[in-house]
Amino acid sequence: MRRRAASAACIALLLLAGGAMSACSASVDIEAPGKELMDQAHQAANEALVAAATTGLQALQATGAVTEDAVRDALEKAGAAEVETRVVGDSLLFGAEVSGGCVYGSVGASGTVSIDLGGVNAHGGCIREE
């Protein structure tokens, strides 16, 4: 829906201005993941969820209990919804819906937890490629 609104705005701008396609293409680039796709109000509102999820995921790592089900449970307990997981190499990737976008990241076998907020991916979901 956001893409349609941005596309409609670009078409209207093009009709009024008679060109300037490059300005529209830059503002409609929602294929790339990143924080710019989640407004600051939603980022701030989701910081407590990120903190709780980070704590939960780090606790899983400390006990050696990192499984797809355990990661899903930790993220849902923190407040995320529609959690997706996938194992890639020695990392477990995750993505989940939150207010205004997605929380996504990975839990690595080397003891790292990566977690961030942003917009949906190119396929409309929240899980990212590593």
Score class of each variant (00 low, 15 high):
11 I>T: 14
14 L>P: 01
15 L>G: 07
16 L>I: 13
18 G>A: 02
18 G>S: 05
19 G>Q: 05
30 I>Q: 14
31 E>R: 12
33 P>G: 08
38 M>C: 06
39 D>S: 12
39 D>Q: 10
40 Q>A: 15
42 H>E: 14
43 Q>C: 12
45 A>M: 02
47 E>S: 15
48 A>E: 10
48 A>Q: 10
50 V>Q: 12
50 V>W: 05
52 A>G: 06
54 T>G: 09
54 T>D: 13
55 T>W: 04
55 T>D: 13
56 G>Y: 02
57 L>Q: 00
57 L>C: 03
57 L>S: 03
60 L>K: 03
62 A>S: 15
63 T>C: 06
63 T>G: 12
63 T>A: 13
66 V>D: 06
67 T>P: 01
69 D>E: 14
72 R>D: 02
74 A>M: 02
76 E>V: 09
77 K>W: 01
77 K>H: 06
79 G>P: 09
79 G>C: 10
81 A>F: 09
83 V>A: 07
84 E>S: 13
88 V>L: 15
89 G>A: 08
91 S>F: 05
93 L>A: 08
95 G>H: 03
96 A>P: 00
97 E>S: 12
99 S>E: 12
101 G>L: 02
104 Y>I: 00
106 S>H: 10
107 V>E: 00
108 G>T: 14
109 A>I: 03
109 A>L: 11
